[in-house]
Amino acid sequence: MTDTTMTIDKTKTDTQPAAPTKAEPDMPPAIKPAAERDPLRARIENFSFYYSNGFQAIKQVDMPILDRKITAIIGPSGCGKSTLLRSLNRMHDLYPGNRYEGKVILEPEGENLIGPEADPVLVRLRVGMVFQKPNPFPKSIYENVAAGLRVRGIKKRAVIDEAVETALRRAAIWDEVKDKLHGSAYDLSGGQQQRLCIARGLAPNPEILLLDEPTSALDPIATAKVEDLVQELSETVTIVIVTHNMQQAARISHRTAFMYLGEAIEFGDTNQIFTNPKHPRTESYITGRYG
């Protein structure tokens, strides 16, 4: 096990008495903290989420989000992956009655993104989101990318022009759209629309970019372009991606979290998770025994 690998295993030391019985697999101990050499961008601490009907979808999750790394969240359908992801930028606030517990601390500022003092609108600008299906606004390509900048109160055209171009370049779509910026975003292909949505999320210069199954609606060629883009972006922005595609998680992520029934069962280096999982539920999922 390397210094950067964090799993739910308990490690015995010389000073610890031996446990009288073996821990049940369904009762994982707390996830270990990240190694000091891996700087954090956020810390999810004892986090739970309840829908307005009282259903608890996320249960006491602890998870480090490493700075300028790709963290993949995997697990079977209905395990809470997307629910957790949408909690990180307060998307659930759009529906009354939903409730958070615990903390999501943005580092190094130490701000609690789900605290009552945090403005959900500003949180969504600092923690951008790209959804499963491309969802461009019914506006021009330019106005799609400029939307977040206008919410931030930026009005100078020269500043917006520069930010739009920068975001489109970072999303690897500038050369394809630079001559039709004022044309409809709906005229783009599916893959282009998804990269436009990534540019829209990047324009306000977020600290974290969330990707919820960003390639599930795309063909293999468009998927490869988005995966290459995500890996390139991770050099400058922290990325958290939810995916059902385990091969995709293995290809592009640095760390992987496995979730089951709303709990974070195991978290660690992606190679370790896929080749030497420590928890039996993780191994069962990785080997295809259920999903």
Rank of each mutant, 00 (worst) to 15 (best):
A42T: 03
L218C: 08
L106D: 02
T275D: 07
M63A: 10
Y186H: 14
E101L: 08
M6S: 14
S87E: 08
R124A: 07
P214Y: 03
G183A: 11
P108D: 10
R90M: 10
E36V: 10
R90W: 03
A23Q: 15
V123N: 05
P277R: 06
P28K: 07
Q247G: 15
A163D: 01
T83I: 07
D26I: 13
N271Y: 13
L210R: 01
K139V: 06
E227V: 07
G183W: 11
G262Y: 01
L66E: 12
T71W: 03
V145G: 03
A72L: 10
I73D: 02
I273G: 06
Y50E: 10
Y51W: 08
E109L: 08
Q56T: 07
S184P: 06
L106T: 04
T71H: 05
N245H: 13
D3G: 09
T5Y: 13
I154A: 04
M129Y: 08
I198C: 03
I252R: 00
R124P: 04
E213I: 03
T21A: 15
I141G: 00
D269V: 09
L66D: 05
Q132C: 04
A163I: 00
E36P: 10
P33V: 07
D14R: 15
A35W: 10
L168Q: 00
T215Y: 04
H92K: 08
I198F: 05
A171K: 01
P214I: 01
V130N: 04
E213S: 01
T83R: 11
Y95K: 15
D175A: 13
G268K: 01
M1I: 13
L233I: 10
M259K: 06
L233M: 11
G262S: 07
T15D: 15
S284G: 15
I105D: 02
Y100C: 12
L188I: 02
K225E: 13
A185D: 00
R169M: 06
G148K: 05
K12Q: 15
I65E: 00
T4D: 15
T270E: 04
R200K: 07
A42L: 09
V104Q: 04
A35L: 06
D67K: 10
I273S: 11
E232G: 10
E45G: 12
N276V: 11
L94N: 14
R37W: 10
S184N: 07
Q194R: 08
T275W: 09
I73N: 02
Y50R: 11
H279P: 13
T243M: 02
G148C: 08
D219C: 14
Y51L: 06
R124T: 08
I8N: 15
R150I: 13
T71Q: 00
M6K: 13
K180V: 06
A158K: 15
S140Q: 11
V61Q: 05
R200Q: 09
G148S: 09
M27S: 15
G291F: 11
S216R: 01
K32H: 14
D161P: 11
L149Q: 07
R37Y: 14
C197H: 03
V123R: 05
P108A: 09
T243A: 05
E235T: 13
I239R: 01
E213L: 00
A217L: 05
D67Q: 14
N271K: 15
A42P: 07
M246Q: 12
W174C: 00
A185L: 00
I114E: 02
F267T: 04
T7F: 06
L261E: 12
R200G: 02
